[in-house]
Design a protein around this nucleic acid. Structure first.
Lengths: 122, 122
DNA sequence: CCCATAGATGCATAATTTTGCAGATATGCA
DNA sequence: TGCATATCTGCAAAATTATGCATCTATGGG
C-alpha cells in the first residue's frame, strides 16, 4: 500500500476531525489558552456533555491534551499553531453570496483573534 | 446567529470536503497542474466515475474549476496554494506508531512534491 | 448518421457520524 | 460519610456520506 495513500489517509483523518463547526470553535477557543470544559461549554453555549465528547475525540487524536487540577480538567492544544493554520484556510472557503472577499477575511480573522471580553462578543 | 459560528461552519464545510483520502490525493495531484479526469483516474487507480463524483463535489464548492477542450475536461485548483496549505498540516497528524517525526514529515513532503515520473511511483 | 471515447448524474444501499440521554467517576467539602 | 460539582462514557436513534452501478450527454471520426 503506497505511502502517498497512507499519508492522504492520515491527513484525511485530521480533516475529518476538524470537519465540525463545534470542534473548530473549540480549537480556536483553545488557541487563546488553556480552558476547562465548563468554560468552553459556556463560551460555545453548548451542553458540557457535548463539549466533553468533542474533546474526547480531539484528545484521542492528540490534538489537545488535558491537565487536571481538582475537579477541573484544563485542556490545551498540543500544537498551538493549529489554530492559526486553520485560519489560514479562510481564503479557500467558498464565499459566494458574501461581501468583499479580502475585507471579509480580514474581518473574520480579527473576530477570531480578538480576546472575547467575556464571551458575549461571539 | 453570531458570525463566529457562521465562519466556523464555512470552515467546517471546507474541512469536510478535504476529509477524504481520495479528494486529498486529487488535490495534491492537481497541485502539479491541470489534469483530465482520466489522467487523474489513472494516477489514483480509481474508477473514473468515482473521480468524477469527487470532482463534482470540489467543483460545487469552487475548489477546482474545469476547462473543456474536445472531449477532455481539464481540472485545476482555483487556489493553487491549497495544495501546499494541506501539506502544512503534516505536523499535526497523529504520528503514534510512526518513525522519527521530523524526518517523517520531510520524507512525506518530498514524496508529494516530487513530480511522479509516470505515476508508478505512487 | 453511427460508433467509440470521456465524463457526468441519479439512486439505492452500505458505512460513518452526530446527538441526546442515562448512567458512571472523581474530587472537594461539610 | 454524604452530597454537590465537574466531567466522562456507553448506547441507540437520527442525520450524513460514500460507493457501485446503470444511464445519460457531449464530442470527434469515419
Amino acid at each position: 500500500m503506497p505511502s502517498r495513500v497512507i499519508v492522504s489517509r492520515d491527513l484525511a483523518d485530521l480533516m475529518r476531525l476538524l470537519a465540525h463547526a463545534d470542534r473548530l470553535r473549540l480549537i480556536e477557543e483553545l488557541g487563546q489558552g488553556e480552558k476547562t470544559v465548563s468554560e468552553l461549554a459556556a463560551a460555545l453555549a453548548l451542553p458540557s456533555t457535548r463539549i466533553s465528547q468533542h474533546l474526547a475525540l480531539l484528545r484521542a487524536h492528540r490534538l489537545v491534551a488535558e491537565r487536571r487540577n481538582g475537579r477541573s480538567h484544563f485542556y490545551h492544544l498540543t500544537h498551538p499553531q493549529l489554530a492559526t493554520w486553520i485560519l489560514d484556510a479562510l481564503p479557500f472557503v467558498d464565499i459566494r453570496n458574501r461581501l468583499g472577499e479580502a475585507e471579509h477575511i480580514e474581518r473574520v480573522r480579527a473576530l477570531w483573534s480578538a480576546q472575547p471580553p467575556h464571551h458575549n462578543v461571539e
